[in-house]
Write a protein that binds this DNA or RNA. Structure first.
Lengths: 216, 216
DNA sequence: GGCTGTCTCCCCCGTGCGGGGGAGACAAAA
DNA sequence: TTTTGTCTCCCCCGCACGGGGGAGACAGCC
């Protein structure tokens, strides 16, 4: 028989806490081990109780759900987080999923569905409310095939072109002449049919040649 | 009692088709209404049978799952698509979810889980296999608050700065003097602490001020 | 009335960059 | 062997751009 899932509930409304606890206690394999009324207290409770999963309300006084979730992620990354919000999908969801929050449900969720969601999250899956899912998936960029054939060296130069460095500085970094870099850049612009460095970088990003982080 | 869910199975391996059909027929509310051995035939079958959902293998001869899914999306957008693949997560998943494919499961999925997934997708949710979900969510960019306070006009100029147009051309489009555009650009670079136009655009993209789509 | 912020426009200057050439060294393919 | 591709380096030219300065018109706020 599997161990029961230890749950911590963090919400500033007592009725919500009690209601959730009541619903969840109906399930034999769920165990509500604690409640907290804001993020700060919840963070303490999570550290002491070490639950499997924390249900967190997004809007709370003193320390809101986002802040708490991010803090918990840092201190106890193994504890799963299920975010609860009202009916509207908050833009902060992007930060949350990007930060690795596993679950995001709206408060109008059916109890049975919530139980399913909790199980999914505890088992390492991610559960996002359909509306949230839709919004998040809308952010996905198609992964175009790199139709342009750049040489490895050119791709390397192109990555550098996304940096603040001038061609002279890039040349210094790569231990080649500035003319070489400029020559490569010329060919890259030619191949990519882009009018300038900025557009080339944007185009490269669109086709997935360059990611939106590594700044050299 | 709800109507049963009409399913079309598209896979080039007969054993897979038969196995799936057998498993799914065990569920009282699932009905396998047809099978097809490649995307082209599957597309025809889908148009004739009008199923609720199509289970499609990604790799197939003649017309693969991606091509078929995209075609079906265009012709019969109401028919849901559940993509099936081997154990590895294909990069094409980005294109698929971006195109609105609702489900993506690996073939090693538990039958019960597949049934759950089918129900979820038919009910308008998206179901992605945990590994796929992880990969897809990794693509999400955090939604930083625009910490820099740009005026509306400056944001407008900044959007134009992401275009191939020169300042002179932008000025023409906005019916102001080139000097005005250059002046705004100067202030934008100042505020954003960026050394040049290209970096400013990249920075703007990172904080979500600009999206990675069509240039002006 | 002042003060502040925004939008507009102007000047100058130096340089980074795009576009046009060309060329040598080397390796792999034909 | 010749040819092709890649990487390296060089020259010149003109323009776009970044950085410095200043200024007038207007709206809103105190």
């Amino acid at each position: 028989m599997p161990e029961s899932i230890r749950i911590l509930i963090v919400d500033d409304h007592a009725v919500v806490r009690k209601g959730l606890a009541m619903v969840l206690r109906l399930e034999s394999d769920l165990e509500v081990v604690g409640e907290a009324e804001n993020g700060r207290i919840g963070l303490e409770a999570a550290k002491n109780l070490n639950p499997d999963i924390v249900l967190v309300d997004l809007v709370m006084p003193e320390m809101d759900g986002q802040e708490m979730a991010l803090a918990l992620r840092k201190s106890n990354p193994k504890i799963k987080v299920m975010m609860l919000t009202g009916t509207e999908v908050d833009d902060r969801v992007f930060d949350l999923v990007a930060a690795g929050i596993e679950g995001y449900v709206l408060k109008n969720i059916e109890p049975g569905e919530l139980v399913r969601a909790i199980h999914a999250v505890v088992h390492g899956e991610a559960y996002l409310h359909p509306d949230v899912m839709k919004k998040v998936l809308g952010r996905i960029q198609p992964h175009h095939a790199p139709s342009i054939s750049l040489t490895p060296r050119e791709i390397e130069i192109l990555e550098w072109m996304a940096s603040p460095n001038t061609y002279k500085q890039i040349a210094g970094q790569l231990n080649v002449s500035e003319e070489t870099v400029r020559s490569h850049a010329k060919n890259i612009l030619e191949k990519m049919k882009q009018p300038n460095r900025a557009q080339a970088v944007l185009a490269a990003m669109r086709i997935g040649l360059i990611k939106l982080d590594e700044g050299k």
